[in-house]
């Protein structure tokens, strides 16, 4: 594969994300013209329109971009590190554990006392689950052990989340179970962007330098070690980076499944199966998928707060089945 084709792929994805970001800004129940909306975004026009664009649509679009990029990047890195196509934050319980951390922070009142408690608790939940999965599935991450560990952690975290919400004195808390399991970007504000963005930035920064090591790992751990990859440090960076990305994303948007699974698979051929090149491509691809899904929930059922996870699962689950058939054919 030539460098130029890779650049072309990345440029195409950037353009796609930019178009979807703009479309996300222009989609909403308040019928406003495109020109009018963009003028309002820059502070011109009716006060209410300015408020809608800046306080409702802009945070929603930004979060769609960030959450999608976080999910796509985590999926690509996990699959590269474990050399297992089934690794994904949703499947191995990272998202569910991050949800549990977030729910605990909200319902103990910790997040009301200190705004950063929410993402930090989500990060702690995510980190704990990644450590558990790596321990249970082993460094090589055999498919069966990985999936079993993931199912167990997901189920346990989901049950604890539901328990906390059911015990809440607030009659509306139990409804939230849906949000934490399927994710949504409805009615988020700039506050949520500020809560999640610093953590996600740290996550991106931690995962970005692992690309070279992931590339080396395709030759096996010994070969990687011989070219100077320090496995212990790589594992630590990976846990910290993924926990920060998924913790930040889940704290503000709930757990959105399948993005981290599907996106790296779709893009793998376009980057000639290079794990290093897959990382940025998947981040962009994830952002495009979540932005598109978030536009679709608003177009399909306006005003109903259809959850993001519903759409990603509708697309992702059949893809997952296809993956099973493919792995079986290949006799893995």
């Amino acid at each position: 594969m030539t460098q130029s084709r890779y650049s072309l792929t990345i440029a195409g994805l950037v353009a796609l994300v930019a178009v979807l970001f703009l479309a996300s800004l222009l989609t909403g129940p308040a019928a406003m013209g495109a020109g009018q909306s963009l003028a309002a975004l820059f502070g011109r026009g009716d006060e209410m329109l300015v408020l809608i664009m800046r306080e409702l649509r802009l945070p929603r679009a930004i979060l769609g971009l960030f959450v999608g990029a976080a999910l796509g990047m985590s999926g690509a890195v996990m699959q590269g590190f474990l050399r297992n196509p089934l690794a994904e934050p949703g499947l191995i319980g990272t998202s569910a554990s991050a949800s549990l951390g977030a729910v605990l922070a909200i319902h103990t009142g910790l997040s009301a006392a200190w705004a950063l408690a929410l993402p930090v608790a989500a990060l702690a939940g995510a980190a704990l689950s990644v450590v558990l999965v790596l321990m249970l599935a082993g460094p090589r991450g055999g498919a069966l052990a990985l999936i079993l560990a993931g199912i167990a952690i997901s189920a346990l975290a989901g049950a604890c989340t539901s328990l906390v919400l059911n015990l809440s004195p607030n009659p509306f808390a139990a409804n939230e179970i849906v949000f934490w399991m399927l994710g949504s970007l409805a009615d988020r504000s700039m506050l949520h962007v500020w809560i999640a963005a610093p953590l996600m930035a740290l996550g991106f920064a931690a995962l970005w330098p692992t690309r070279r090591a992931l590339e080396a790992l395709t030759l096996g751990e010994d070969a990687a070690a011989s070219v100077g990859v320090h496995m212990g440090r790589l594992r630590l960076m990976l846990i910290a980076g993924i926990a920060a990305l998924i913790g930040g994303a889940t704290a503000v948007a709930g757990s959105v499944g399948f993005v981290g699974l599907v996106v790296p698979h779709v893009l793998r051929r376009a980057v000639d199966a290079s794990p290093a090149r897959l990382v940025p491509a998947s981040a962009l691809g994830g952002a495009a998928v979540v932005l598109a899904a978030d536009i679709a929930v608003r177009v399909i059922a306006p005003g109903r707060d259809l959850k993001l996870g519903v759409l990603t699962a509708l697309v992702g689950a059949p893809f997952f089945l296809h993956l099973i058939l493919k792995t079986r054919r290949e006799g893995l």
Binding site: G28, P29, M48, I52, S111, N170, P171, D187, G303
Partner: peptide, 29 residues
């Protein structure tokens, strides 16, 4: 039914009658 916040802002009512808050936290609140 559910009224999207955007539509409420555009409608610009003279008086806003808010629901009461319940103890404990909930996203809906």
């Amino acid at each position: 039914g559910i009224l999207a916040l955007e539509r409420l802002l555009i409608a610009d009512p003279d008086l806003l009658v808010e629901g009461r808050r319940y103890p404990g936290a909930a996203r809906g609140q």
